[in-house]
Design a protein around this nucleic acid. Sequence first.
DNA 1: CGCCGAGTTGAACTGAATCAAGAAACGTGG
DNA 2: CCACGTTTCTTGATTCAGTTCAACTCGGCG
Lengths: 189, 189
Amino acid sequence: MQRMHELLRQQVNITEEDWRTFSACFEPKTYPAKTFYLQAGETENYLTFVESGVVRFYVEAANGDETTVGFAFDGWFMCVYSSFYTREPSRYYGETITETKLWRIHYDDMQRMYDRLRVVDRIGRLATEQMLLIKSERELSLLTKTAEERYLDLLSKSPQLFRYVPLKHLASYIGITPQALSRIRKRIS
Amino acid sequence: MQRMHELLRQQVNITEEDWRTFSACFEPKTYPAKTFYLQAGETENYLTFVESGVVRFYVEAANGDETTVGFAFDGWFMCVYSSFYTREPSRYYGETITETKLWRIHYDDMQRMYDRLRVVDRIGRLATEQMLLIKSERELSLLTKTAEERYLDLLSKSPQLFRYVPLKHLASYIGITPQALSRIRKRIS
DNA sequence: CGCCGAGTTGAACTGAATCAAGAAACGTGG
DNA sequence: CCACGTTTCTTGATTCAGTTCAACTCGGCG
């Protein structure tokens, strides 16, 4: 919680009183490794701050194949936004990779906070803007870069992933099969 | 402006007074067809509401190839968000396809509005959330669908594009070359 | 009329998918 | 702490979608 407080203060002016009101809405929770924090078909009810751990988001194709869409790391806000905003069932699974400690706020509480505290609208806007930047960058990467370039980007920007996540999930994040990734790694080394 | 007012009122409670204050910051502008509203290297200074017309966003590769990243239609807010938020030069070009009438607000005025009117924080948050939904959908499409599926999606969801935009730009939006799109169209028909 | 950009078509090539099999690493129970 | 089964990773052979390069058609427009 300490960490979330610091992170928010870097971005917005939040009074001690507003922080107490806002932070009181969060509940702590811990998931063991390899457990679902959200399954496809469920509705995302929480906006979550990751205190420690790594979470993987993926979708499942009709044939059972998984496509990894993204990850959430410690110090991030995470959420299946498409379900959280629209209140429709999620198409994504969210699964912990390592043991994950988090703080989360329920959708209903968040709406109350939006109405009650002006600073929360501001926080929500800035958090969404940051996620939009990440998604725009990824769109550009998928459109203009080769699989090999995306692999090297991942290697340099998120080396910690390679310690926890099986290569097959990184392959599907890059947009290729595990076999293709294996050959890229062989070619490079 | 009428249209923007209606659109906003569908989403937030905005008082007449706040609307007058906010809308007074917007200036009208008209671009002929095939002109740049923003070039790569420039910083995006405006958040823009498209009154009528179609705008294409693209990036240019080292070899001169263009990759179309997206479009903006009438009734949309448009912006090169990555440049607008970060105040860094844009890597995207924004070029009108048809004559385009728009209303725009300068970055500095928008920041003033954020501080002055609470409802603008709310509007900014909701607008960003919607763009994030669009980008998330596109990410999923690029990761899990074939070029042919993306072509058919575009055909059913945005048929108006086919009236204005050369196929080569739709091809690069789909993520393939004009030749490959030509063959897909032949195969399907 | 001649030019130019857009679209199509053909042929050769390439990166990645697929199918299949084997090797390595991992974790779980005894 | 080892043995076993499972998952992950690698490698090979084949197929496929899409790229690249090149030639040609078509329609608009100075």
